[in-house]
Simulated scan of single mutants.
Amino acid sequence: MDEAGDEGFGKLAEGNTAQSHWLSLGAAIVNEANDRQIPQWRDEIMSSFVSKKNKRDLHFRELNHDQKVHACATIATKPIGACVVSSNKITILEAEELEVFKRPQHLYNYLTRLMLERITHTCRRRAEAEGGKASLRIVFSRRKGTDYDKMREYLEFMRDGKEKMRPIRSIDWSVLDPADIAVENHNVRAGLQIADLFTSAVWKAFEPNAFGRSEDRYAKELASRLLKIRGNALNHGLTIVPPISKCPLSAAQKNFLQWIIDRKRKGVGP
């Protein structure tokens, strides 16, 4: 699991600042057999770049536009699932919960929760369809300032039913044990590099650049890998917070989400 963007709110209201408008968390999901193939898939991408042929650290932000498109198109051909949750931080500035989300790691934990709700249910359904039982192991990309022991405590708090309000969805605890959380550096685990690819590609579809424009080409290349229920990726493999009906979106962002919706209607992709 990896992230793109930041949790900052301090100068967000001032418009074009160093703080991102969106925070995205994403995961690359594979079964045990395919997990062993990920380093080869990463190397396949890196070997196609002349300047990076001997490197083993794929980082989305270090690629130029053409390399990003190629990397995304290559990974789209592999048996990897993707789940990304993207939060429009601008909407939180006027929310009653602003002071809560200003607390360190709170937004990060909340988005992690939303993502795990979707991933665990997908894993269980897939395992049951194949006559087996799912077990999920999570590897986080090490992030400065994140306390992963607190993350485990947060998950255990939910698992033990200590929340005051029962959530609409919940993590499937038959699939996930909070103890099965690992943290590794981005440059030593190929799976985290692929998670970065998914997360950053979707983040770019929402985050405005210095000219106020977003870029959805990368996310479109990877759209076939998003988790789906009955062909629908929205709110499963791709979730935006708040929902579309409450989220101020640019014309480009709306067009991208409509494109995702239309893929279901047309029956495109796995």
Rank of each mutant, 00 (worst) to 15 (best):
M1F: 08
E7Y: 06
G8Q: 14
F9C: 02
T17A: 08
T17F: 11
S20K: 14
W22V: 09
L25W: 01
L25M: 13
G26R: 06
A28T: 07
I29K: 04
V30R: 08
E32V: 10
A33E: 11
R36P: 00
Q40F: 15
S47R: 14
F49M: 07
K52G: 01
N54F: 10
N64F: 06
K68D: 02
H70N: 11
A71I: 07
K78I: 03
I80R: 01
G81D: 04
S86V: 14
S86R: 01
S86K: 03
S87F: 06
N88S: 10
N88W: 09
I90M: 13
T91S: 13
L93W: 06
V100G: 04
F101V: 02
K102D: 02
K102L: 04
P104V: 00
P104N: 08
Q105N: 12
Y108E: 00
Y108I: 01
Y110Q: 06
T112R: 00
L114D: 02
L114S: 04
E117V: 07
R118G: 01
I119K: 00
H121R: 10
C123V: 06
R124D: 10
R126K: 12
E128S: 06
G132E: 10
V139G: 02
V139E: 08
R142V: 10
D149G: 10
E156C: 07
E156S: 12
F157Q: 12
M158I: 14
G161K: 05
K162F: 12
E163I: 11
R169N: 14
V175T: 05
L176N: 03
V183R: 12
E184Q: 13
N187C: 05
N187M: 07
Q193F: 11
T199M: 05
W203T: 00
E207P: 03
E207V: 04
A210E: 12
A210C: 03
Y218V: 03
A219D: 06
L227I: 12
G231D: 06
T239M: 15
K246T: 03
L249W: 04
S250D: 06
A251M: 09
K254Y: 08
N255W: 00
N255Y: 00
L257D: 01
I260F: 09
D262W: 08
G269H: 05
